[in-house]
Write a protein that binds this DNA or RNA. Structure first.
Length: 819
RNA sequence: GGGGGUGUGGCGGAACUGGUAGACGCGCUAGACUCAAAAUCUUGUUGCCUCAGGCAGUGGGAGUUCAAGUCUCCCCACCCCUACCA
């Protein structure tokens, strides 16, 4: 007798049928809780390595446990992969479907500043609440593998990995102008700056120079692009990553400037004969170096200062081109020896290329605008367009360009670079928009960076045996105006000894960004309790790669790129055996309020999953999340539509009354059943969950029309329904007298022959216009179909007196009579 | 400026490699049950007309085809991402 027997309230199908008179409505509240407890007690979703079975690793982005609780958007992704996981299990796969919490982050800390409640306390409470909510919707996670990034047993390995980055010269300390949020008093990565404002609080971001830990992600830029080729990611994710990395090929050229070579990056070295001036970013080192040689230092200094005060936003929205000429020193164009003026302007950015450009106003609109504002010459070097109006940015034959004249773009580029190489003033060069990853945060609630600074030995990593370096418990989380981390106040913790020489040293007081913990969490799921390694080789060999990873589009350029990079680094070090972490990446659309707006506390239009589960049940909630619309597109929440699937749950329950164990399914019954099996199977695989649910509805509607429902038909429905509505399916499965868990049953296999119709309705068209339909046996000969079509009264009437020129018959589809 | 996407009834949305446009659900209509309501079940539901039929119809306009929501070209509208990236 299987373990389930002790939970069965009734022995058999017949016993259950007798109870029907007493309860005629589905009591989802009791029944869902009952099965959730049984599944949990019996560890039905616990999974271990089983080399006799093929593995399947399904992954969803683990949530940040915010105080607001679960959003109805979370279950869209979680239910989708739950459906897929459940189907895969029924198909015999050994499925790993884990969950955890990305538990470090700013909101908990900001909340602490406001209320005095320590982040460790609020985070713990939030995780408990999230756990309760996730369990209430019956997701088949293996809870024994639940992890949290703020757990020292977890972040020990995040710290360990940082040390590996440091040891491989992938992490370095550098003084960089960083994005600084004056409101949060924290440095931000480019990715956290939205429209020049802080992603968290919305305050305008300014530039600030600070010593930062920086991770050299740009060393992987090429591979991050190239390796996308072999991955099954949706196209828009690939496009967005490629765009973000922003690879551009061109040349680096040296222009003489004072005693130096002024380096510029350009994608169009072939337009060098059109250069009429140059521009440096105001932060360019030459500006300070030559300050005492310029004729107008006061003017220059004033401009540099003004730029520094500007926020990213102000700098990017200014329509007018501003700048100051560096009077007294001119640059020499190496191609033609011409002396040209040099300016500083804030339209040239210090972070990209060399922070200096050669300006070709005839063929670049920004340079054109600047040249017009400062009355600079504009020399056309590409034929075409009217440069008295605007810059000509299209292609054209080279003119006014000496040895490049007559060449097209491609040949011009080649020849220009060749020339620069020969004369020793330049070479081809690839540049990326992607910058190195600024890894320091002047905050409290994050992983301490396991580094100490010794006057004698410089920056030293902690000895690995001293990990984890635990976050000290402090109560004052306010950073100061200089931007020193709150940890700087914990002097006992800061003062330590150097791991190398044993002398006095100070700990790093900055913490890691919240993207650190999420960069490798999928590896920890493989072996979450290992205290010797981040995961055993055996577990990684068995479970990796992630077969299917679903998440939001908003993580495409942040988390997804970081974790791919992180994984590649571990691969290069030999710690993981796959060069990419995820085989397949899909993306779900957002769930919006009924008016199409984003759900947010401030708008007061948030739907709480708890209310839905309480009032309609977990199964109805799950079904609705799947039925709401095309999975990859945004969808609007509608309480009315939710009623539709709620009724559907009731119908499935009510059908049981008509189920009969003694009758055999008819040919029509089997046809409806096999159609449904084929459709649901295919549509789950294609993530067309909305139409998968409608197939189930069609099948249920068919059964509603029967006086008696053969048991086999009903049991097949339950199996197909099990991934979507597992509680209902499990309950009715038991009532059918079954002594197994339906979630462990095998997935039905559809038969195309049994699903095929005997007859088809074929449309009859005359000159492409529908004039009627005929019913003929499936796969009838074309001549027979033609004959029937021509015998239609309406057809006769229409073609009377006309000559039939052609008749097109598409088997089982259409007859088109051209007259 | 660059990249990606969307446009179909009153609404959310279906439609495989071009082949009966509107599956499924919501809403609405009429009916059954009820003292009544809710719930449930049954019926109809793209619009228009001279209604056993016909005409129009998938953002707009051209085109290819026996046949276009689907393919090609040109417009329009909206959404998302990104942005002075040389």
């Amino acid at each position: 007798m299987s373990g389930i027997a002790k939970y069965n309230e009734k022995e058999s199908f017949e016993d259950w049928k007798k109870t029907w008179e007493i309860e005629d409505r589905y009591n989802f509240r009791t029944i869902e809780k009952k099965w959730q407890k049984i599944w949990e007690d019996e560890k039905i979703y616990h999974v271990d390595i089983d080399k006799n079975k093929e593995k399947f690793y399904a992954l969803v982005e683990f949530p940040y446990p915010s105080g607001a609780g679960l959003h109805v958007g979370h279950p869209r992704s979680y239910t989708a992969l739950d459906v897929i996981s459940r189907k895969k299990r029924m198909q015999g796969f050994n499925v790993l479907y884990p969950i955890g919490f990305d538990a470090f982050g700013l909101p908990a800390e900001n909340y602490a500043i406001k209320t005095g409640i320590h982040p460790a306390v609020s985070t713990k409470a939030n995780i408990e609440n999230f756990t309760r909510q996730l369990k209430s919707i019956g997701l088949s996670f293996d809870w024994d593998r639940c992890i949290s990034t703020c757990d020292p047993e977890y972040y020990k390995w995040t710290q360990w990995m940082f040390i590996q980055l440091f040891k491989h010269n992938m992490a370095y300390k550098g003084k960089m102008a960083i994005n600084w949020c004056p409101e949060c008093k924290v440095g931000l990565a480019n990715e956290e700056v939205v429209n020049g404002c802080c992603e968290r609080c919305g305050a305008p971001v300014v530039r600030k120079n600070k010593e930062q830990w920086i991770v050299a992600i740009t060393k992987y830029a090429d591979r991050l692009i190239d390796d996308l080729k072999d991955l099954d990611f949706v196209d828009r994710v690939k496009a967005q990553q490629i765009n973000w990395i922003g690879r551009s090929e061109g040349a680096e050229l040296d222009f003489e400037f004072g005693d130096d070579k002024l380096k510029v990056f350009t994608t169009r070295p072939d337009t060098a004969f059109g250069v009429t001036y140059m521009v440096l970013a105001p932060e360019h080192p030459f500006v300070q170096k030559y300050m005492n040689k310029f004729e107008n230092p006061e003017e220059i200094k004033a401009y540099v200062e003004a730029t520094a005060k500007k926020s990213e936003l102000q700098r990017s929205i200014s329509e007018e081109k501003t700048g100051v000429e560096l009077k007294g020193i001119k640059a020499k164009n190496p191609f033609n020896g011409k002396m040209i003026p040099v300016f500083i302007s804030d339209y040239v950015l210090t972070g990209y290329g060399t922070g200096a450009i050669m300006a070709v106003p005839a063929h670049d609109q920004r340079d054109y605008d600047f040249a017009k504002a400062f009355n600079l010459p504009i020399i056309q070097v590409l034929a075409g367009g009217d440069i008295s109006e605007k810059a000509w940015e299209e292609d054209g034959e080279h003119i006014n360009s000496e040895f490049l004249n007559g060449l097209n773009k491609e040949d011009g580029m080649k020849k220009a670079i060749e020339y620069a190489k020969e004369h020793g003033f330049g070479n081809s060069k690839v540049n990326f928009k992607l910058r190195d990853w600024i890894f320091s945060r002047q905050r409290y609630w994050g992983e301490p960076i396991p580094m100490v600074y010794c006057e004698k030995c410089g920056w030293q990593p902690l000895d690995e045996k001293d990990l984890p370096l635990e976050l000290p418990y402090i109560n004052d989380f306010l950073p100061n105006d200089e931007g020193d981390s709150p940890l700087a106040k914990a002097t006992d913790w800061v003062n330590t000894t150097c791991p190398k020489c044993g002398g006095h040293a100070r700990r790093e007081t900055d913490i890691m960004p919240n993207w650190a913990g999420s960069s490798w969490y999928f590896l920890r799921y493989c072996d979450p309790h290992n205290d010797k390694e981040f995961a055993s080789k055996e577990s990684l060999d068995y479970w990796m790669n992630v077969d299917w990873y679903n998440g939001g589009m908003e993580h495409t350029t942040l988390h997804l790129l970081y974790s791919r990079f992180w994984h590649k680094f571990l691969y290069d070090c030999g710690y993981v055996n796959t060069k990419e972490p995820y085989k397949r990446r899909t993306s779900h659309g957002m769930i919006l309020a009924s008016n199409g707006e984003k759900m947010s506390k401030s708008r007061g239009n948030v739907i709480n999953p708890d209310d839905i589960v309480e009032n309609y049940g977990a199964d109805a909630f799950r079904l609705y999340e799947m039925f709401i619309g095309p999975f990859e597109q945004a969808a609007m929440w509608s309480d009315e539509s939710l009623m539709g699937v709620y009724r559907f749950v009731g119908k499935v329950y009510a059908l049981f009354k008509k189920v009969d164990a003694d009758i055999k399914p008819s040919e029509d019954d089997l046809r409806a059943m096999h159609k449904c099996i084929l459709e649901v199977s295919e549509r789950i695989d294609q993530m067309k969950f909305n139409t998968a649910v409608s197939s189930l509805m069609t099948y249920v509607n068919y059964m509603s029309g029967l006086n008696k429902i053969p048991l086999e038909l009903y049991k097949t429905l339950l199996k197909l329904l099990a991934p979507f509505a597992p509680h209902l399916a499990e309950e009715m499965w038991a009532r059918c007298g079954e002594k197994t868990y339906i979630v462990q049953e095998s997935w039905p296999v559809g038969d195309k022959n049994l699903a095929a119709d005997n007859t088809v309705t074929i449309a009859v068209q005359i000159c492409g216009k529908m004039r009627g339909t005929i019913e003929v046996p499936m796969n009838s000969a074309n001549e027979d179909v033609q004959k029937v079509a021509l015998s239609l009264e309406n057809v006769k009437k229409q073609i009377e007196g006309k000559e039939i020129r052609k008749i097109i018959v598409v088997p089982n589809r259409i007859v088109n009579i051209v007259a």
